[in-house]
Amino acid sequence: MGRAYPSMEHGTPYVYGHPIAPCAMADAKGNVSVIMHAESNARLEKMLRATCIELGLKTSVVGRPLRGSVIKEFAVPNTVSQSWYLGRAVHMARKSKTNFVDAIFDVMPGRVLFSGKIIDVNRDVSKGGYTVGRCVIAPLAGDELETGDTSTEKRHLVIPFQNEFLYAAYTDSEDMHESEVLCTVPDLISVLGEDGEAIGSQELRYGLKATVISMPGHPLWTGDERGLKIGGPEYFGLNMKWHSVGKYEKPKSVLDEFK
């Protein structure tokens, strides 16, 4: 799917009408559940989650095989290569003591949304088993700024999440009123620590310094109403339009560089 989403129905082949069923779920104790048919992929997801919760939240699922032609048409290409190049970029930036954000954007398009310190995290587990909540990031104080950083931003940034980050918006520092949405799914929002490592929603905590970046989503998500309906703000019950940070560029393949 080219990014993380919280449910199986977000797999891009499934977004474009290919079924997940028949599928099977099993745990380490030998319990097995097989679903032969479901009225929709959304219904199947709920059935699988109910079984997963019953089995203690530690299960594996396998869906029906898909033809190679389906994978070629509806899978986001070169995601493993993209991960490799991003990892190398961050590693080399650390080694050379250069800016890891600049190194990331040398590999793929995107932009910095905010830099600051996490001052609030609300997190809970929903009835469906999702980690839901939001975090608030405040701008750094003058004595916390890096040498050469001349940022004058006074607003805070709020990032709601459902396993993954849903959108990023400026808020007033006093009443936390959201004043400007910067980016939403299906574009990818990533929170990075001081060493360039990604911080997931379950790892957010008070006091961490963080840089928030965003990268454009693949056209399978953004170039078709089917992608936006399942991968965009509407699916998550958000009353807002998709806000993008730029144009997607296909990642290069490591096979092309090292063949």
Rank of each mutant, 00 (worst) to 15 (best):
G2Q: 00
M8A: 06
E9H: 09
E9A: 04
H10R: 03
P13G: 02
Y16F: 11
G17D: 05
H18I: 10
H18Y: 10
I20S: 01
A21P: 04
C23S: 05
A28G: 03
H37L: 10
H37V: 12
S40C: 04
L44Q: 02
E45S: 12
K46C: 01
M47Q: 11
M47A: 13
M47S: 04
L48N: 02
L48P: 00
T51Q: 10
E54M: 05
G56V: 07
L57R: 11
T59C: 15
S60H: 00
S60D: 10
V61M: 09
V61I: 15
V61A: 02
R64H: 09
R67P: 02
S69C: 02
V76C: 14
V80R: 08
Y85C: 00
Y85E: 03
V90W: 01
M92A: 02
S96Q: 00
K97P: 06
T98R: 06
N99Q: 06
A103L: 01
V107A: 10
M108K: 08
P109N: 10
G110R: 12
F114V: 07
I118H: 12
V121F: 15
N122V: 04
N122Q: 12
N122S: 11
R123D: 13
V125F: 08
K127D: 06
Y130I: 02
T131W: 04
V136E: 14
I137L: 13
A138S: 13
P139I: 14
L140G: 09
G142S: 07
D143C: 07
E146C: 08
G148T: 12
G148Q: 13
T150H: 08
T152P: 07
E153C: 01
L157N: 10
I159T: 02
P160G: 02
P160L: 00
E164D: 14
L166V: 01
Y167H: 08
A169N: 03
T171C: 11
D172T: 12
D172W: 06
D175V: 09
M176C: 07
M176I: 03
H177T: 12
S179N: 05
L182W: 14
T184Q: 10
D187M: 05
A198W: 14
G200V: 14
Q202N: 08
E203M: 15
K209N: 14
K209T: 12
A210L: 13
A210N: 08
A210V: 15
P216N: 14
G217E: 10
H218V: 01
P219R: 14
G223N: 08
D224L: 04
R226N: 04
R226T: 07
R226W: 00
P233K: 04
P233M: 05
E234A: 08
F236W: 03
F236T: 01
G237A: 13
N239C: 15
H243G: 02
V245N: 07
V245M: 05
V245Q: 09
G246H: 09
Y248T: 13
P251A: 03
K252N: 13
V254H: 13
E257S: 08
